[in-house]
């Protein structure tokens, strides 16, 4: 009887550890996600600024794009289209990140709950053991 209960306790302990690890992993993922998101938001702001300035330019203005170490001359229209595309891409990416963030948070919550339940179970078991 005593040995079976200790075995159960050990099982629970292992379970708890696994879940706790998963939880911390999810939390790490969330933190990473946040960081990426932040970066994207900054880029989005920068791109919007560029677009605003490009819109203000006249047709004959010379626009260059820095590619590696060289400045490559670009057509204004082309540059404009490129920036627009980039903004679109970034907004799409942000939306996607939002979705994954939501998912991760849901996962985190459910994991946290299971961990709490496991902890309670272990506590109950220990209490019962100390009583008997």
């Amino acid at each position: 009887m005593a040995s079976s209960s200790t075995a159960a306790a050990r099982e629970l302990q292992r379970d708890l550890e696994n879940h706790a690890n998963a939880l911390s992993k999810i939390q790490k993922d969330i933190a990473k996600n946040h960081q990426v998101r932040k970066q994207y938001t900054i880029q989005l702001g920068e791109n919007e600024l560029v677009l605003k300035e490009l819109d203000l330019l006249k047709e004959d203005a010379n626009v260059y794009k820095l590619i590696g170490p060289v400045l490559v001359k670009q057509d204004l229209a082309e540059a404009n289209a490129n920036v627009r595309k980039r903004i679109e891409y970034i907004s799409g990416e942000l939306k996607r990140l939002d979705g994954t963030l939501q998912d991760l948070e849901d996962q985190q919550n459910s994991k946290r709950e299971t961990v709490l339940k496991l902890q309670q179970k272990i506590q109950n078991l220990q209490a019962a053991k100390s009583k008997s």
Partner: peptide, 28 residues
């Protein structure tokens, strides 16, 4: 002037136009 607009885009501008760009940035 060759003004960096961000994201690797540069544009050739005269002094006055550059000042305009800079002022917009300042407002932001």
């Amino acid at each position: 002037f060759l003004v960096l607009l961000g994201e690797g885009y540069y544009v050739e501008r005269a002094a006055k136009q550059t000042v305009d760009i800079l002022q917009r940035r300042g407002k932001d």
